[in-house]
Amino acid sequence: MIEVRNIHHCLSGKMIIDELSFELNTGELLCVLGPNGAGKSTLLKLLSGESHCKSGQVLYNKQAIHELNPKQLSKIRAVMPQHSTVSFPFSAKEIIMIGSDLNKNELAKTLAEVTKLTKVDQLLDRPYQQLSGGEKQRVQLARVLMQIWKDAPYPRFLFLDEPTSSLDIAQQYQVFEIVKSLKSKNIGILAVVHDINLAAQSADKVLLLKSGRAMAFGTTDEIITKENISRTFDHQVLIQAHPITQKPLIISNINQNYHAKTYGNISYAN
């Protein structure tokens, strides 16, 4: 379990994360939603150990994050970046296996399983730089999965930074289906997501972030409400049930927003 306790972070005197607490369990997909500049990327940096918070604590399986060195951290958590540029002509397979310290048999087995799951097994010999955006994203996903795929006696975690930002709708759901299948592997997943509907359909839990503060944290059904979303994004929305999954479906309330922009007085009451 990852426990985030009252973390606080500022950069050049500006508050980025303020008094934030939540937790992430294995077998759980937690989506972090919030407007631009809410502190989502900074939160990921604090969670991954890339930055250290000014106060408060991040605990990995009860151990404080600053007690773990990069090597130890890399066995517990993997991070998929939003964009990845690779400056040299690596093949897709080389990117996926990069840095792996598995032995030969484990490597072959893990590579086969991971590339099958992420549907990149046909791309392995292609130059990475010539792949399409969706293919690159899947190769990167395969790369980070290699890092935490091998069964371990301790819980592992995967952080995704807007994994679907450059993907079309089919690819977006494909990536989330892959990610959801990891829940059975003693892995907890935290994804920063822009598309509220994608989160509403996929997430077990949701953290709403605004100006570095948690607006709400809990199960998806509890948190994705008309009032919470409108308040977090300063934008009036309507919520309906998805005709098939019955999960919340968020629709922009265009007239209300036009009215509010023109005349002010946004009311968040139901």
Binding site: N69, L73, S74, K75, R77, P81, S84, F90, G99, V144
Partner: peptide, 19 residues
């Protein structure tokens, strides 16, 4: 191996366990 990791970017190299 470190140079291979670094060619993904410094953050990515750190995430994969490189000091």
């Amino acid at each position: 191996k470190p140079l291979n990791l670094l060619s993904l970017g410094e953050s990515e190299a750190f995430h994969m366990g490189l000091s």
